[in-house]
Amino acid sequence: MTRTASCSCGRLRVGCEGEPQRVSLCHCLACQKRTGSTYGIAAFFREQDVVTHGRSSLYVRQADSGFRVTFHFCPDCGSTVFWKPERLPDLTAVAAGAFADPTFPKPANAVHLESRHSWVGDL
Rank of each mutant, 00 (worst) to 15 (best):
R3D: 12
R3T: 12
T4S: 10
S6D: 09
S8E: 10
C9A: 11
G10P: 15
G10F: 09
G10N: 08
L12N: 14
V14C: 07
V14H: 01
G15R: 13
G15I: 09
C16T: 08
C16W: 06
C16N: 13
G18V: 09
R22Q: 15
V23I: 11
V23G: 01
V23C: 08
S24W: 00
C28Q: 10
L29G: 00
L29Y: 01
C31S: 09
K33C: 13
K33Q: 15
R34H: 02
R34D: 01
T35G: 14
G36R: 12
S37P: 06
Y39T: 06
Y39I: 11
G40R: 01
A42V: 12
A42G: 12
A42M: 12
F44L: 15
R46F: 04
R46H: 08
E47K: 15
D49W: 00
D49T: 05
D49I: 00
D49Q: 12
V50Q: 04
V51P: 00
T52K: 02
H53D: 13
H53L: 07
G54H: 04
G54V: 05
R55T: 01
S56I: 05
S57V: 03
Y59L: 09
R61P: 05
R61N: 09
Q62R: 08
D64P: 06
D64V: 07
S65E: 06
S65K: 02
G66Q: 06
G66L: 10
G66R: 01
F67D: 15
F67K: 14
T70R: 05
T70E: 06
F71D: 05
H72G: 06
H72Q: 15
F73S: 10
F73C: 05
G78S: 14
G78T: 14
S79A: 09
S79H: 00
V81R: 01
V81L: 04
F82T: 07
W83G: 03
P85R: 01
R87T: 05
L88Y: 08
P89Y: 00
D90R: 12
D90W: 06
D90P: 05
L91Q: 04
T92Q: 01
A93W: 08
V94K: 00
V94T: 08
V94P: 15
A96C: 02
A96G: 05
A96Y: 04
A98N: 14
A98D: 14
F99V: 09
F99I: 07
F99M: 03
A100T: 11
D101P: 11
P102D: 08
P102G: 07
T103E: 07
K106G: 11
P107Y: 03
P107S: 04
P107D: 04
A110K: 00
A110N: 13
V111F: 03
V111S: 02
V111T: 13
E114A: 14
H117E: 13
S118Y: 08
V120I: 12
D122F: 04
